[in-house]
Design a protein around this nucleic acid. Structure first.
Length: 885
DNA sequence: GAGGTCCGGGG
DNA sequence: GTGTACGGACCTC
């Protein structure tokens, strides 16, 4: 008979020293099935320059199955060579075998995980569907139905099987004055949330104490029973996904340790595999066979597109779901509520946390992109949460197999050392970032190359497999880095081929998206195109990543050098053919200053420039990206702009900031507020003087002590016992004071302390105080600290490039009394005498014509009258034009 | 700015 | 499990 399954997980077990592959999957009806397959053996390749026959003889003597095959070595363009394919019996013995055969030559693919060896060979991919021929059979080794396979084939089904999600959150009780440690401190509650409902429940809280009966709560007589109940429910519900918030780093390791301590069953995966964490030097990663562990925290934190100030569940739930956690005054309150048997709040707190983690994953569709990454790359979903390297490796393995190319081993310590040394001497030169013309500018166009590196790889056939290392008489392209690659006519590189497929598919998917009306299907398509984009963009990094299996520094350097050449040429081409100036450029984008004010006109001008450049650059496409009506650039990678982009034909504006942090953990909200205010004034009103005034007003408010304490408090966490801190830090000193004042508050490790700096003669760090304490005692804050450490440092650079020095910004602050500054006016300077130290343009006051650079004789070409420098709305002389030219 | 170190989330 | 985290912020020189 045949069954069809969606692949959730894959591993193997040994039976009589032989491996049996297990594929855990789900049928369209929602049945969990484990497919057993015993016809697959571990193997790898050996390349040697010695006599093949004698080595074969030697290997056969050791009871190994050997065969001579033709394979291509991927680094450097070359023809296939003879290799020995060595087939073993037990995958776990492969490292031994690999070490043994190293004396005969170079092994290939001898460190590919057995499950992936199998999946690649049968062309199977995580979350994809398989059609299996075979029969159901009885087994006790897995907890679901078992199916003995004769034949396994991939099939194309777009839908997902019905999947089940379980969210888990534990609460524990620190017994002593320290963070909860699993070898000593008990778990008091386990909260579970189900999707779909389990026996009519959408959630349940397990409590390790007998208490009054309540719906949605299961009382257990002790912690051991609590763990047993948990085990029972997980197996009954049989989830495909086990979800949590920071579950990888906290809940799971803690649970496992407690189960060990209390000697309860721990195999809550779908097989009886017992230790279900991989022990790694510094970290254990939970792994449940047959299920997928999903840590919402991990996924949200790693999203490169959305950044949050903090990643605790409270902040994330509020920002992403608009929901609040149940308020709890830290671990101390948990202990207190538990001791006083006041469980109502504690239960709702636990219940809410599991619910929030579940909602994040399901409502925010956190898994969509990973489903697609698994389907495209071939990784199991569980492994798709990791880094880019594994994804590329897996994709390459699939293509390499088709093309009879072998995958090199991962680098060992010696190889890594060598690469590190090579890097130091030889280096990997990155992208080109041009020195910007700092200051405030108007009417700036942003054009950029869409996927520059992937396009370059495709266009120039850049790949380890096409790199020409010796002088063969063959058709090739020489790159600006002086490396040579054979042309596509000779052999299409694997990276170019993969990228071509990824990019073409992405175009197709995006077109499908446009005509798709079903929002559900559209969402899946969108996840797919995002996954394709992620994969295309990470291809370049693979050749330059130090632990890469295809580490070829020359290739990484070739790509970046092509990038640098492209952007340099682009700038030149634009400035030579259009009356504009390229203000700044980073990697694949150019910022162009124009004299056009109308948005639509600017856009079509931008398009005209990009078309012009694109025409002269085969394989590459420069695109109009957006307009900055005003653009303030401080330095490389640090700028702000008032952006205008079209959305369905309408202009949408936004104040954007890149590299300028307005929000930082170690800044108080007053700092963030004033930075935002200043940048907005400068960008939207073009009024630097007004912005400076806004700063002076804040300084005056600080001096008068009228700024609310909430705006001045800084938050820092106590992460370790106080005696372990070396230097003196404000929040640590405050912690000491707090304990001195209130000895019952011993458990301060792990708490986040809020503090303000107050006036006094002591060292700064000794003057940190709790805001509530400051209010109670009527203490005064230290304005000098806030001005010098919180207000001025982030603002100085902004005003500096706008031509206002920090002494001007603080003008008179030290000499005059505060009231005088508050009321006083700056002396008036006639426009002709204004001194500027940067300029935007040169203007003629007579005909109002403006130029980008001064004329040679300093006179207006039409009126023959002296020209003036214009900057941020004022006209005047320039202090030292050579600096800014 | 290069290089080294600490830290995150969780209770 | 054919294994051995990671990326960013911060500090120091």
């Amino acid at each position: 008979m045949n069954i069809q399954l969606q692949i959730l997980d894959c591993d193997y077990t040994l039976l009589n020293g032989k491996p049996i592959i297990r594929i855990f999957g789900k049928t369209m009806k929602g049945e969990t099935v484990c497919v057993f397959y015993d016809k697959f053996r571990p193997y790898f390749y050996l390349h040697t320059t010695e006599d093949l026959d004698s080595i074969m003889f030697e290997l056969e003597k050791n009871d190994l199955n050997v065969e001579i095959v033709d394979r291509i070595i991927p680094i450097g363009y070359q023809e296939p060579v003879k290799m020995i394919k060595i087939t073993g019996k037990d995958p776990s013995k492969t490292p031994e075998l690999r070490a043994f055969v190293k004396k005969f030559g170079q092994p290939y693919e001898a460190d590919v995980l057995f499950k992936y060896r199998f999946m690649v060979d049968l062309n199977l991919r995580g979350m994809e569907w398989i059609d299996v021929k075979g029969n159901f059979r009885k087994t006790t080794t897995v907890k679901c139905k078992a199916f003995e396979a004769e034949e396994i084939k991939p099939i194309e089904i777009l839908e997902n099987a019905p999947l089940k999600y379980l969210s888990v959150d534990i609460e524990c009780l620190p017994l002593e004055d320290r963070v909860a440690t699993p070898d000593k401190d008990p778990i008091i509650m386990i909260s579970l949330a189900f999707s779909p409902e389990h026996r009519g429940m959408k959630d349940v809280v397990l409590v390790s104490r007998l208490n009054k009966k309540e719906s949605g709560v299961i009382n257990c007589s002790n912690e051991k029973e609590l763990l047993e109940q948990f085990y029972k429910i997980v197996n009954e519900f049989d989830p495909d996904f086990v979800i949590g918030y920071n579950i990888n780093n906290f809940d799971f390791p803690y649970l496992i340790k407690r189960m060990e301590v209390l000697k309860t069953k721990r195999d809550f995966g779908r097989s009886e595999k017992n230790p279900f964490t991989h022990k790694m030097p510094q970290k254990e990663i939970p792994y449940l066979s047959g299920r997928i562990v999903v840590d919402a925290y991990d996924i949200i934190k790693r999203d490169p597109w959305v950044k949050f100030k903090r990643y605790n569940l409270g902040t994330i739930a509020k920002e992403m779901l608009g929901e609040e956690k149940v308020q709890m005054g830290g671990p101390a309150e948990i202990g207190e509520l538990w001791t006083k048997n006041n469980l109502e709040k504690l239960i709702s707190y636990a219940r809410k946390d599991a619910e929030l983690a579940l909602k994040l994953v399901i409502q925010k569709r956190l898994l969509d992109k990973f489903f697609q990454l698994a389907k495209i790359s071939g990784l199991l979903l569980q492994d798709s949460f990791g880094g880019q390297t594994q994804r590329i490796e897996c994709m390459l393995l699939h293509v390499f197999r088709d093309k009879k190319i072998v995958m090199p081993l991962k680098s060992d310590a010696a190889e890594l050392r060598k690469r590190n040394e090579e890097r130091e001497g030889y280096g990997l030169k990155g992208a080109l970032v041009l020195e910007p013309r700092t200051g405030l500018h108007n009417s700036v166009l942003v054009l950029d190359y869409k996927s520059l590196y992937p396009s370059l790889i495709k266009t120039y056939n850049i790949c380890p497999t096409t790199l020409l290392t010796d002088n063969k008489n063959i058709e090739y392209i020489e790159t600006p880095f002086k490396t040579k690659f054979v042309t596509k006519n000779i052999r299409e590189g694997i990276l170019p081929l993969l990228l071509r497929k990824l990019i073409d598919t992405r175009v197709k998917v995006k077109n499908q998206m446009k005509i798709e009306s079903d929002p559900e299907k559209k969402r899946v398509l969108n996840a797919k195109q995002l996954a394709l984009k992620d994969l295309s963009n990470s291809m370049y990094g693979f050749t330059g990543y130090i632990r890469s299996r295809l580490y070829v520094l020359d290739i990484a350097n070739t790509i970046t050098s092509y990038g640098r050449e492209t952007i340099t040429k682009t700038k030149k081409m634009i400035e030579e053919n259009f009356p504009v100036e390229v203000l700044y450029s980073d990697t694949d984008s150019v910022f162009i200053k124009t004299n056009i004010n109308d948005l639509d006109e600017l856009k079509s001008y931008g398009q005209k420039i990009s078309e012009f450049v694109t025409k002269q650059n085969p394989g590459l496409e420069l695109q109009f990206e957006k307009i900055y009506k005003t653009f303030l650039i401080l330095s490389k990678k640090r700028y702000a702009g008032w952006s205008f982009e079209t959305d369905n034909g309408k202009w949408k504006d936004n104040v954007e900031m890149k590299g300028i942090e307005t929000v930082r953990r170690d800044w108080c909200t007053l700092t963030s507020d004033i930075m935002m205010e200043v940048i907005n004034t400068i960008l939207k009103e073009g009024d630097v003087k007004k912005a400076a005034k806004q700063v002076r007003e804040v300084i005056i408010k600080l001096s008068k002590g009228v700024v609310p304490l909430e705006k001045l408090s800084i938050v820092k966490g106590i992460t370790k016992p106080l005696e372990d801190y070396d230097g003196i830090q404000p929040h640590v000193e405050l912690a000491k004071k707090i304990i001195k004042r209130d000895p019952t508050r011993k458990n301060i490790v792990g708490e986040r302390l809020e503090f303000v700096i107050v006036k006094g003669n002591q060292l700064l760090s000794k003057r940190a105080e709790d805001p509530t304490f400051v209010k109670e005692k009527g203490l005064e804050i230290d304005p000098q600290y806030y001005i010098e450490n919180q207000i001025l440092p982030p603002l100085e650079r902004i005003f500096d490039v706008c031509g206002v020095s920090s002494s001007e910004l603080m003008e008179g602050m030290r000499q005059q009394s505060l009231m005088e500054i508050f009321n006083g006016q700056k002396p008036k300077i006639s426009p002709e005498e204004t001194v500027l130290n940067a300029f935007e343009s040169v203007v003629c006051k007579n005909c109002s014509f403006s130029f980008r650079r001064p004329t040679l004789n300093g006179l207006c070409p039409t009126c023959n009258l002296p020209l003036y420098f214009s900057y941020a709305g004022s006209i005047g002389k320039i202090i030292d034009p050579s600096i800014k030219l």
